[in-house]
Design a protein around this nucleic acid. Structure first.
Lengths: 219, 219
DNA sequence: TACTTTCAAGGTGTTAATTCCTTTTTAACA
DNA sequence: TGTTAAAAAGGAATTAACACCTTGAAAGTA
């Protein structure tokens, strides 16, 4: 007697969800024990049952797949997650893989591929395929960014200089930065406010994160 | 008529090298055009010919595989490299993948696997297998670094949780973090001060930089 | 039990960060 | 040359960050 594994399905399109549900339950030893329209619904009930696997779409209303993965990671919840979606950009795949997904499949995959992905995750803890490896290799481990140039163009030289000083490991205050840049304290305030406004930031911490994420400063 | 591809072999044990050479040339459309005892020999002659692929061992005298990859990367030389070695630790695999290798095989692989690896690299530019994906997934996306582990051991779970919230793109204040962690404002102060002292930091900005540099938080 | 250590919590004061508003300077331009 | 827009400075007030010191509870230990 083979144990039946419990699977949660998170997918907003009910038709698609029913399709996958049937597909999965026809495999024999899997049962879809819970279904959710979006990530919010999932995390609200995540402490109720104990799924062996969560299969989730990426584009969903209210709380999408990425946000859900972030939440799960933040709350240290480690049920394996298999992403099933149409979005297969390198950036998306890498982001998700970084937030801890165990496998990634296009919705267009065959039933057989889906089955082997599920099997693999449940037995070995993960499913690896070309999508992940290729995305990683193509990017040499770094996220893809066209945005970078755009951002650089939006910033003046002095703003970038300021940004680099903000990210210095010496942890300068704005006053020290003003000295280093040989301008007034308030001028530096201006650089900060300008960057805050342009990139919707609210704090020095935000500046640092923004600069690093967009590779505007060397690490 | 199929084009014969040119392959360089870098391997210090001549017996092993000859074994592989024969194996490779028996595949039909591949020819080992140069052989080297170590990486130093390879880079000395790297500008002479134009190999379609370099197959390299890791443990070699004078200049080993890792050092050679670093040199090639630094000099922007992009011939595809397939690593063939016994060392299959996660750290090694990830380090190499970061320095740009296109594939990684244990020396114990079958002739058939070797052939498909070579074919794959020459046609698609890379060869992905379990070794790479697994190493990456096991590490949750982070490179293995001794320092990182040391730091992780020095931090309590709550301190790490706190650190992740500090680095959140939502730019939380400490008060908001206290709410999220469901502890008192002053308790959060404690986490902060403890991290400040342990790692010689002075500011929230410093925390963010520290966390990111040591890959304690996802980007 | 008494002692120590560790962590959560609390009080208070100082410094830095952030915001809002105003003025001056600079540079571009009709 | 006078007008205007943007950058640089400045004043001042609010909030967050940071530092120092104390207390209480829990856990481990002699």
């Amino acid at each position: 007697m083979i144990k039946t594994h419990s699977i949660y399905l998170v997918e907003d399109h009910i038709i698609v969800r029913n399709g996958f549900k049937e597909l999965i339950e026809n495999m024999g030893n899997y049962k879809v024990t819970e279904e959710f329209d979006n990530g919010k619904q999932l995390i609200n009930k995540i402490h109720v049952g104990q799924p062996d696997l969560i299969i989730m779409d990426l584009t969903m209303p209210v709380m999408d797949g990425k946000a859900t993965m972030r939440w799960l990671k933040e709350h240290n919840i480690k049920y394996p997650v298999l992403i099933l979606t149409l979005d297969t950009s390198d950036k998306t795949i890498i982001d998700l893989y970084k937030s801890g997904v165990r496998g990634y499949l296009p919705k267009t995959c065959t039933a057989q591929t889906l089955k082997s992905a599920i099997d693999n995750i449940l037995t070995t803890g993960y499913y690896h395929n070309e999508l992940l490896s290729n995305a990683l290799l193509r990017n040499d481990g770094y996220p893809v960014r066209d945005e970078r140039m755009e951002i650089l163009n939006l910033c003046s030289d002095r703003e970038l200089h300021f940004l680099r000083l903000v990210c210095s490991p010496d942890e300068f205050t704005y006053e020290q930065i003003a000295q280093k840049m040989d301008v007034h304290k308030r001028t530096v305030d201006g650089y900060r406010e300008s960057l805050f406004e342009k990139f919707k930031l609210r704090s020095k911490t935000g500046l640092v994160l923004f600069a690093i994420k967009n590779e505007l400063v060397p690490l």
